[in-house]
């Protein structure tokens, strides 16, 4: 049983969102980088739990990114995982990124591929579905629970307004979301061990980018809050009805 876990690098959630180069690039100066929370908290931890339950499970991490991704890859390895692969390319277009991961998946014949539900920077929710299509295997998105018995998986996935329990055979791609597992903090043994785990760097395959960023914008600032006295909540309701026309 081999699991490939996609790990993406995103700015810390408190990072200031600003742009440079005529608003074409994220202003990365001074920004702290983290493992995309959906990748770390849910897909990686769930995969680690599967290995804890069955030590024969092999966990490989994959990242598409430059050398500056290595600190977050090492951090992921400190949580768990046997080795990591970095595809040495900028993660710009989703299709380009998915094609790289699909290539790694093909070469390593993995049984299961985990992604996070989305990255918290680009909010694409695209990579998992694209990988599955390139490999022509099933894709279950927004998984909140994942169980495995021999080659059959039972997954609870979120749907609009509820949940569905589904059964699918391996191999497949799963995008993971809150509920799958609980966030963990790497321990000293993990951090020490991660330093010597293999981190293989491979060059990307030639793939066209289907999209490109033209420019970023920031939303207009709010005009400022209108405060209503706590003794007069009727006034708030009047404003919402007559001024904001919201109720």
């Amino acid at each position: 049983m081999k699991i490939l876990i996609c790990i993406s690098k995103t700015p810390d959630t408190t990072a200031k969102i600003a742009f440079t180069d005529n608003n074409t690039k994220f202003a990365a100066d001074g920004v702290q980088w983290i493992i995309n929370p959906y990748d770390e908290w849910y897909s990686l931890v769930r995969a680690i739990e599967l290995k804890e339950a069955d030590p024969s499970v092999v966990l490989h991490l994959v990242n598409v990114g430059g050398a500056d991704s290595e600190p977050i890859i090492r951090k992921a390895l400190a949580l768990g995982g046997d080795e990591a692969i970095r595809v040495n390319a900028d993660q710009s277009d989703s299709y380009f990124t998915a094609a790289q991961i699909a290539q790694i998946a093909k070469e390593g014949s993995y049984d299961l591929i985990f992604t996070g539900k989305e990255t918290i920077d680009y909010n694409g929710s695209s990579i998992g579905g694209m990988i599955a299509e390139i490999l022509d295997i099933p894709f279950v998105s927004h998984a909140v629970k994942f169980d495995l018995a021999s080659s059959q998986t039972t997954i609870v996935r979120e749907i609009d307004g509820g949940e569905e329990t589904v059964q699918v055979n391996l191999p497949l791609v799963v995008s993971c979301q809150k509920g799958m597992a609980e966030q963990r903090i790497p321990n000293m043994k993990g951090i020490m061990g991660a330093r010597t785990k293999p981190l293989k760097v491979v060059e990307p395959i030639a793939t066209e980018a289907l999209t490109s960023v033209v420019a970023f914008d920031l939303p207009p600032a709010k005009a400022g809050v209108k405060l209503v006295s706590a003794d007069n909540p009727e006034e708030l309701v009047r404003l919402l009805s007559e001024e904001a026309k919201a109720i």
Binding site: D93, S94, Y95, A98, N123, G124, S125, S126, I127, G128, G129, M130, I131, A132, E133, I134, F139, V140, S141, H142, E208, L210, T211
Partner: peptide, 17 residues
């Protein structure tokens, strides 16, 4: 979110979500 990315890869059609 479950279909559009698959379709994008299948048709090589650029996707914006």
């Amino acid at each position: 979110k479950a279909i559009a990315p698959r379709l994008s890869a299948r048709l090589k059609a650029g996707l914006v979500t």
